[in-house]
Design a protein around this nucleic acid. Structure first.
Length: 498
RNA sequence: GCCCCCGUGGAGUAGUGGUUAUCUCACCUCUCUCUCAAAGAGGAGACCGCCGGUUCAAAUCCGGUCGGGGGUACCA
């Protein structure tokens, strides 16, 4: 149900403040997906007009985030484009020019009132003092303005809001109307001459010929202001049309609160560190307000772009559910090509200090062999890549350095000592190759049949001895990878603590 | 106060006049089984915020109401 047939141009325009937030990335993803779906253009612009809060570090993190996720942009910072520059801090002269035209055209006016004066006037008139700016300076004479300047006051520039309702058709919510008089005249340029977001954002969207503004619901209430500004820009010949707006639902955290920057779950990089894959995380983020089909929620990025339409976005607030996100990620891990999965484990092992190399290609021969054999053992047992440290860590530590989980050790039954003794005796006789096909029957015969112990109780002490944990990859394959000497050494080590 | 948005099982979600109200995750049980997963089978869980109206018939249309969220900056 497209209203416009012009090529789609969308943008992602974060402020470089703080660490990338999952809600911000969700917004980026939807813009990107819409551009890719429609064959349109995805613009990446940086809104760094607040020197007090913006930082280069945050800018770098934004780039890092988009590159990690594979959300590529057609125009914008780093890559350039026909409407460069794409950092607002480098476009200041343009804003001054537009502001001057808005003033000259009567769309904006100079305002000298302080907030205290506005409030005082509301009180004096018996109105609610929190009503907002009252339009007092709308029609000041030259003499009045001169008098204020003589007092040393520097005026702000305010947009003149119309005395009519402002209606626009939101792509997600349908028609939205703001009642006449409910949106006060707002500031677009500070007394210092510094332009504000309310001016700069629509001016750049117009300059960059943005056709669809897809952003968070938190900006919904600023839309009537922008629509009015846009209309002025159109009349001034500075914009072609008013773009279409679509407001994406909030991303909620626990309870009924917006997921805030304070919540650890909101930090994109935390998820990366824990071992979310780009595929898994993006898949989950796409589910925050959208779904590909009623009976399906695991999909690839190409499937997403093929199916995505802003019109299908649901207006309800979406809750960020880590459990669900992890389940989606686990499904993606299982779908990975075995070699791909294996390669992705290395950085996590490296980070934990288990292997000296940070990439598979740089791995030593022995580590490489262990990982080649170990990765397939855990691929369908993991939710996050970071779990590999716990799952396969035992393969990469010296016998003396194996940490045995205290709880797992304490949970062993009385016959554990007997089991370990008997297992050690039997395993001594298994050939050096230590194949699972040899150890399993030997241990079964000795422990299950010989001692009459149920398999789960017979093998648990061995699992704890060999891997240090109660949950591990399959036992016999683990022993095979570890080799006969290490396996026996670890069994002996645990035995002495019982 | 004023303005705007939202309201279907624990979470997400399908469903715009007639269905036993969809599916996924989570949860419970069972099968498989050396642990954990995976896989397979089954189960519990919402009368669609509430009230009223229109209609033979409403989660779906209308009115009202309550609840939650957001905005109301010389922040973005």
């Amino acid at each position: 149900m497209s209203v416009s047939s012009a090529p789609v141009r969308v943008r992602f325009c974060p402020s470089p403040t703080g660490t990338p937030h999952v809600g911000l990335i969700r917004t980026c993803l939807f813009n990107w997906a819409y551009a890719r779906h429609t064959g349109g253009t995805f613009v990446f612009r940086i809104e760094d007009t607040d020197p007090a809060r913006d930082s280069d570090e945050s800018y770098d993190q934004l780039l890092d985030a988009l590159r990690w996720l594979g959300l590529d942009w057609d125009e914008g910072v780093e890559v350039g484009g026909p409407y460069a520059p794409y950092r607002q801090s480098q476009r200041m002269d343009r804003y001054a020019d537009v502001a001057a035209q808005l003033l000259a055209g009567g769309y904006a006016y100079e305002s000298f009132s302080t907030p205290e004066e506005v409030e005082a006037r509301h009180k004096a008139a018996g109105r609610d003092p929190k009503l907002g700016y009252d339009g007092f300076d709308r029609d000041l004479t030259q003499e009045q303005k001169a008098a204020y300047r003589a007092e040393g006051r520097a005026p702000v520039l305010r947009m003149r809001m119309p005395d009519t309702d402002v209606t626009f058709r939101d792509l997600v919510r349908g028609p939205v109307t703001f009642r006449a008089g409910s949106v006060p005249d707002y500031v677009i340029v500070r007394g210092t001459g510094h332009p504000l977001y309310t001016l700069v954002n629509p001016v750049d969207d117009a300059a960059m010929k943005i056709t669809h503004v897809l952003r968070g619901e938190d900006l919904l209430s600023s839309t009537p202001r922008q629509v009015v500004l846009y209309r002025a820009l159109v009349e001034l010949g500075l914009a072609d049309t008013v773009p279409q707006f679509g407001h994406l639902p909030y991303v909620m955290g626990e309870g009924n609160r917006k997921l805030s920057k304070r919540d650890p779950e909101s930090n994109l990089f935390l998820h990366r560190e824990r071992g979310f894959t780009p595929e898994g995380l993006l898949n989950y983020l796409a589910l925050l307000g959208w779904s590909i089909a009623p009976d399906r929620d695991v999909f690839t990025l190409p499937e997403l772009t093929e199916a995505f339409d802003i019109a299908d976005v649901n207006p309800n607030p979406a809750r960020f559910d880590l459990k669900k996100a992890e389940a989606i990620n686990a499904a993606h891990l299982r779908q990975l090509e075995p070699a791909d999965f294996r390669d992705r484990l290395v950085p996590y092992l490296h980070q934990a200090g288990l292997v000296p190399a940070a990439s598979y290609a740089d791995l030593e021969t022995r580590d490489r062999a262990l990982l080649d054999a170990g990765a397939p053992l855990v691929q369908e047992r993991m939710t996050l890549l970071g779990e590999v440290v716990g799952m396969l860590g035992f393969l990469f530590v010296a016998d003396a350095d194996l940490a045995v989980d205290a709880e797992a050790r304490a949970g062993l039954r009385e016959e554990a000592a007997t089991v370990l003794d008997e297992a050690a005796r039997v395993l001594e006789q298994v050939p050096e190759s230590f194949l699972a096909a040899d150890t399993q029957p030997a241990l079964s015969a000795a422990l299950v049949e010989g001692l009459g112990i149920k398999p789960r109780f017979a093998f648990t002490p061995l699992r704890v001895a060999v891997t240090g944990r109660r949950v591990s990859p399959p036992l016999f394959e683990s022993m095979e990878l570890l080799g006969k000497a290490s396996t026996l050494a670890r069994i002996a080590a645990l035995r002495t603590t019982l």
